[in-house]
Design a protein around this nucleic acid. Structure first.
Lengths: 153, 153
DNA sequence: CAAATTTATATCGTTCACGATGCAAAAGTA
DNA sequence: TACTTTTGCATCGTGAACGATATAAATTTG
């Protein structure tokens, strides 16, 4: 059949797109009480590992463009989770730091990964099989970073 | 370490989120000349398999909400790819059909899946390893559909 | 050192994605 | 048949995601 490869069911990318949307949705019940979104949660993960980072470092870590991250940070600042201060050595930079509220949220978010794992186990049976994807996803992501014109170096 | 599970590198979901964004980005150079976006391409895939479907069937197939699909279809109609006509048996329904332009685009899009596969092979070395994820993603997606409160039944 | 280039971030416009809500048509029920 | 509920789709508001563009500060170059 000539158009066989255009069938939705044959497409890896559609599965990734769907799986990503549904996982984000699975986080929703846990993030909503904290008043944050999934991308905001990702920013917090980055800052909980290392506080006081310039916008660019956060963007690179999340493999997002700065014009995605900037408005994200502006909303988080308005929500009182972070503050953005001018860099001292390099005054073009904006250093992002956690506020008291942002630091304390770590404690409230502590159990979210386990909750997600439990949810997935409950409906898929095992989480081990799913976790096998991790090295494959890493390989794919590494490849795609190159494919997409070395946007993230 | 108490917050070990909150590390970004330990998170499957972040990888899915990133892989999905980057794959969509990898489609961009092939879709842009056609004047369509990745979600619009997905709608076309669905309609190329079976023309004349109500909004709801398209949404269910893509596992999207109708309030995402409706504006998507409106833009596609404005672009001349589809038309939306009132259903005959059930006049609440809007039947989505391909236009001549929409039908003809199939020919132009025919090679896109191969192009993507080639791009991925070029940067990751093999596509077989990546394709192993397909059954795992299907299992995860099935599980998440249930997790997310049976939104898509 | 002055001019050109690069870098860090921000702004703008368009397109998703989805929760909440609205509305009319269909289906179920008293 | 009248009333209630459900269903199919649309509208609205908010938050991403990103291409294109802007701006100021740093860096490089002549």
């Amino acid at each position: 059949m000539e158009y066989e490869q255009l069938k939705l069911d044959n497409q890896l990318c559609f599965r990734l797109y769907t799986a990503a949307r549904l996982t984000t949705g699975a986080y929703h019940p846990y993030l909503e009480p904290l008043g944050i979104t999934y991308p905001q949660y990702l920013v917090l993960l980055v800052l909980w590992e290392k506080d006081r980072q310039p916008v660019n470092d956060i963007a690179r870590r999340l493999m997002l463009e700065t014009n995605t991250v900037t408005p994200l940070l502006q909303r988080m600042e308005k929500a009182g989770l972070i503050v953005r201060t001018k860099g001292q050595e390099d005054s073009r930079q904006r250093i992002v730091s956690l506020t008291k509220k942002g630091i304390e949220m770590r404690e409230q978010a502590k159990h979210i990964p386990e909750c997600l794992a439990t949810d997935i186990i409950k409906t898929t049976g095992s989480v081990e099989e799913i976790m096998q994807m991790i090295p494959m996803l890493d390989k794919l992501i590494e490849g795609l970073k190159q494919t997409n014109n070395n946007k993230f170096k």
